[in-house]
Computed example of a mutant assay.
Amino acid sequence: MRRRTTPQAWALRCRIILACADGTSNKDVAAQLGSTPHAVGRWRARFIEHRIAGLGDMPRPGGPRTVTDEQVAAVVTKTLERKPNDATHWSTRSMAQEVGLSQSTVSRIWRAFGLQPHRSETFKLSTDPYFIDKVHDVVGLYLDPPERALVFCVDEKSQIQALDRSQPVLPMMPGVPERQTADYVRHGTTTLFAALEVATGKVIGSLHRRHRAEEFKAFLITLDKQVPAGLDIHLVCDNYATHKTPAVKKWLLAHPRFHLHFTPTGSSWLNLVERWFAELTNKRIRRGVHKSVQALEADIRTWIATWNSDPKPYVWTKTADEILERLAGYLNRIPDSED
């Protein structure tokens, strides 16, 4: 009972037997050790019949194994290293036919080893020559923001379409989901410029029909008016050409409290406002029905106001070194990644 390597389940059974040896009733032993009288009686009877060996786990019922370790290894190896001749990935049926096992057996093996051939995810590795420096810069802003300054994640969500369904939407009913026609009518597009304040989660948004440098400069002017004059403004943005035009650079020189920090190319996941754009798309735009651009813009402004009434900041947790270490793991899995 006092051995440190003894499993806790066995140690409890030993304590039950020692307590019973003192003449305590099953009910009192159960109350003392946090068990049940039925369990105490069972282990007492097992000990009387089999002594110490009776405190172990008995063989469980069921038939013997019909799938060997070699067959399991064959399924896993084929799943990871080969593809079927007539498809891009394995299904439980095709793999079962290939190895001569049942479909349910293949499914159990895949679940045990965490294999999901039907799933595929996307990724993109940045080729920015200053990738490491930019990651340290942006992540440093998130984890250790400068004093007397606000950090904003800025980007534009362009080409937001005002879509109206060609026929009325059928509402949801018990057992029947909401139904929309597959075709739609376009009524124009708009562009949302948004700045997500990292500390509070509040969003400053501005809608424009185009997304040129002129509109980006106007959005910077809006930020300048809404942020208190005594604070510096650090903007995390991507490498879109409109962020680096001569007109924008000239305006930034005239407003030295603005500091731009660029994410690496192909690394939009570093910009937290992209996560907020996903919220906007999922909760307001994707299934929305808008008969005009004005209706779409009014809907977006209402959603931003609702968000700002109870904002929720996105908390960045990974350090730059953790991100780079994770990236190195991906590179090790890609052939010829050193090129």
Rank of each mutant, 00 (worst) to 15 (best):
V40Y: 12
F219W: 12
I160H: 04
V75I: 14
N282E: 14
D22Y: 01
V106P: 12
V106D: 11
I304F: 07
L231W: 14
Q116G: 09
S309F: 05
P117W: 08
R275A: 13
V293H: 12
G62R: 02
G62F: 03
R326I: 05
R51V: 11
H261E: 00
T77Y: 04
K78P: 07
V227H: 12
T127L: 06
V185M: 11
D164W: 10
R13N: 06
A218Y: 08
I160K: 04
L231Y: 09
T191I: 02
P313L: 05
D128K: 06
N85F: 11
E156D: 06
I160Q: 02
D339W: 08
A74D: 05
L260S: 11
G100P: 05
M95H: 01
S309P: 03
R4E: 14
D183S: 09
E49P: 03
F277A: 04
M58G: 13
S94M: 11
K244C: 13
V293T: 13
S337P: 10
V75K: 14
D336Q: 13
T122S: 05
L170Y: 05
V169H: 09
L207R: 02
K244D: 11
Q116E: 15
N282Q: 15
S104H: 02
L296Y: 09
Y330A: 15
L80K: 09
R60W: 05
G329C: 15
A195D: 03
G41A: 07
A162V: 04
T88D: 09
Y330F: 15
F152K: 00
R212P: 00
L272N: 05
I285V: 03
S102I: 04
P61M: 00
T319R: 03
P311S: 04
Y142F: 03
A199F: 14
V273C: 03
K27S: 06
V40R: 11
A39D: 06
F262M: 13
L223F: 02
L192G: 03
R4S: 14
Q32N: 06
G41P: 08
L141E: 01
D155W: 04
T181D: 05
P256D: 12
H89P: 01
